[in-house]
């Protein structure tokens, strides 16, 4: 937490907001939560870069709002959600949405514990009870009618009515963070009722400077010049996807980081980029276009020593 606070201070996030986060934590850190639940508080290594977005997200959560992070691929929605849970010191439940999500998947279901029928809580229920952060990942993949069960949880009522059981109040520490990508195949528009229960944050694509710092953060030994080329490569693929010449499959920040990591492990740059970026698309022609972009930026035969500075230990 301290590390993250320091990071945000360095990033220039408003001191006032960070102080209010500290107050929030003082209020809710005293809540008793089981040992296994406290292990859900994230300790992420990857940071979200973007001061403006950080400030808006923190302000919304401090005001008791639920947050909907909307944006295209590779905008860091999940990284931000996880970072926010870490900053606020709350256990995190990740709920991946799909077309068959229903109330029992979210709230809980009956089960038999060997002697009697009991209620097995779902992630939303746990969030409500333990004041956790629920990440409703790809929320627009689910059918709107399946999400109606969340309405009372997300709005001013702050309750979960578990059919056949209790009506439980949602902890004041709990927040729900939805993520959605309106460009993905298979997604649908959220209905108005659900949208109105979120503060919606339009996630921008990571800025060039931020991406460079992110890569530097993850790979401290990366050579600045080659780092710059990877950054350019990412934006060139992004522009191509924006122009609809290729799909968004190859626009994969995780893939780029993974590729650099493979180079660090000793794989040649061409092979690493092929595995982590080019092959993300299954259309042969599209692959050719992505390969053309890569070939005009990154030599195929870069080795570890070409990409990374020798560390002090290695140098000696």
């Amino acid at each position: 937490m301290k590390k993250l606070m320091e990071f945000l201070s360095q990033e220039g996030v408003s001191r006032k907001l960070l102080d209010r986060v500290t107050e929030y934590r003082k209020t809710y850190d005293v809540m008793e939560i089981p040992e296994e639940t406290s292990r859900r508080i994230p300790q992420s290594e990857v940071r979200y870069y973007g001061t403006g977005v950080w400030e808006k997200a923190i302000a919304a959560l401090l005001s008791g709002e639920n947050l909907l992070l909307a944006g295209p691929k590779a905008t860091g929605k999940n990284v931000l959600a996880e970072n926010l849970a870490e900053l606020f010191g709350r256990p995190l439940w990740d709920v991946s949405f799909h077309v068959n999500v229903d109330a029992s998947y979210l709230i809980g279901t009956d089960t038999y514990d060997g002697s009697r029928v009991t209620f097995r809580p779902g992630p939303v229920y746990n969030c409500a009870v333990y004041g956790g952060f629920g990440v409703l990942d790809e929320i627009n993949m689910a059918r709107n009618e399946a999400l109606a069960v969340l309405h009372a949880t997300l709005d001013f009522r702050h309750v979960i009515d578990v059919a056949g059981y209790d009506r439980i109040p949602v902890s004041p520490a709990a927040r729900f963070i939805g993520t959605m990508n309106y460009g993905y195949a298979g997604t649908r528009d959220l209905n108005e009722a659900l949208c109105s229960r979120f503060a919606i944050l339009d996630m921008p694509l990571i800025g060039e400077g931020d991406l460079q710092r992110l890569l530097k953060d993850v790979f401290p030994a990366i050579k600045p010049k080659i780092c710059q080329q990877f950054v350019h490569l990412f934006y060139e693929i992004e522009r191509k996807a924006q122009a609809a010449e290729i799909s968004e499959r190859a626009l994969d920040l995780r893939g780029l980081i993974d590729a650099i990591r493979l180079v660090e492990k000793g794989i040649r740059s061409g092979d690493a980029l092929e595995m982590c970026i080019v092959n993300k698309t299954f259309d042969a022609y599209e692959r050719r276009l992505v390969t053309d972009v890569i070939n005009s930026r990154i030599p195929t035969d870069l080795k570890r020593e070409d990409v990374f500075e020798e560390t002090a230990g290695q140098g000696e």
Binding site: V99, N100, D110, T111, V117, R143, A185, G186, T187, R188
Partner: peptide, 23 residues
């Protein structure tokens, strides 16, 4: 992709006997 999503929305899972779920 669209068709897959649309039809998936209208598919109804056949219930099966289980150790948990709706009693």
């Amino acid at each position: 992709a669209q068709t897959d999503t649309i039809f998936a929305s209208y598919m109804h899972d056949l219930p099966k006997r289980s150790r948990r779920g709706r009693i």
